[in-house]
Amino acid sequence: MEINFIAIYDGSADANFLFASDSIKDCLGWSPEELLGQPGYILTHPEEREALALIHSNNVKDERMSSIVSYRARHKDGHYVMIDNVIHFCYNLLISTNFTLLSNDSIKHFMRTNSADESYLIHPDGALRLTDNRSSSQSNIKHLLSKAYPWNVNANLTNMQEPRFCLVLNRYSVHANIVFASSMCEEMVGMNQIYCIGDSIYQYVAEKDVDIVRHKIEITKTKGVISKLRFNWSRKKKKTTNDNEETLLNIEAVISCTHDGLVLVARLIAPPKTIRID
């Protein structure tokens, strides 16, 4: 059976662990508490770290909504486990869903790699290659290798990052209840980071878009793909007893799924539109 878990890293060059879901212990033997604050590279194979650093730099520099790399992760008892690591860049965080890779020929691996923006494989000797079939793959690798370092000497990002927020949703509820929200949700869509916990994601989706969002979430859960969607986020405001306004925020999002939850990362793609609700 494919074991999987969620991990959240900071946006620094070390990609320090901020969170790991409980299933990381089933996959790699480590408890979440043992990894918090540790650099993500401590779980990687020494021969693959240079390639992983290049991918990490590229993800941060280009703010990739979704990329996937297959590499060896170190189990607590010392052996290595091949995993698919799906990364969603989210402003100052990297949100990842991670899957034990039993075979490069598995259907779920194929589905993930073909639904990500970019997909990489690191060979045992540390060589890096793109795993898609585009004719531009070789030039893309050269572009990746020539990327400027996105951090300065103080490990601070050198460019302003696009605002994005992340949600983790309960995959076992038909309501897709929110179990975690990153702080940018307040600034971007006016949703309280604390009080939204337990709410259904569908409470915040414009009524006309609920069915498509529900469909995409169900597809992500059953097929194992990285889903991309656009929908209107609804922010309602009561002005008077008989006068309500709804602000529609056009959202672009990516969703991936583990046994521990659904991960959704969103960005704004158009100015807000305010309408009156009769």
Rank of each mutant, 00 (worst) to 15 (best):
A181N: 04
R164C: 06
Y195S: 14
M160D: 15
A206N: 11
R171P: 15
R171S: 15
V189R: 00
V174R: 05
M184F: 07
R129P: 02
N156H: 07
K221W: 02
L167H: 05
L157E: 13
Q138K: 11
Q138S: 12
R214E: 07
E187Q: 06
I219W: 02
D199I: 08
S139T: 07
K216I: 15
R164P: 10
N159C: 04
N152P: 09
P163K: 04
Q193F: 02
Y195Q: 07
Q161E: 00
I141H: 07
V189L: 00
K208R: 14
A148R: 06
E187W: 03
N133K: 00
Q203P: 11
Y204L: 15
L169F: 06
R129Y: 01
L144G: 11
Y202Q: 10
H215K: 15
E162G: 05
N192A: 05
A181K: 01
L144V: 14
T222L: 09
K208I: 12
C185S: 14
M160F: 13
S173H: 10
R214L: 10
H175I: 07
S135N: 01
M191S: 02
T158K: 02
R164Y: 08
L144Q: 11
I141A: 09
V225K: 11
A206V: 08
M188W: 06
Y195R: 09
M191W: 01
K221V: 04
S183I: 13
E207R: 07
N159H: 04
P163N: 03
I217E: 06
D125L: 15
K208Y: 13
A176L: 15
H215I: 15
Q138R: 09
K228H: 13
V179W: 08
A148I: 06
S183Q: 12
G198S: 09
Q161C: 00
C196D: 05
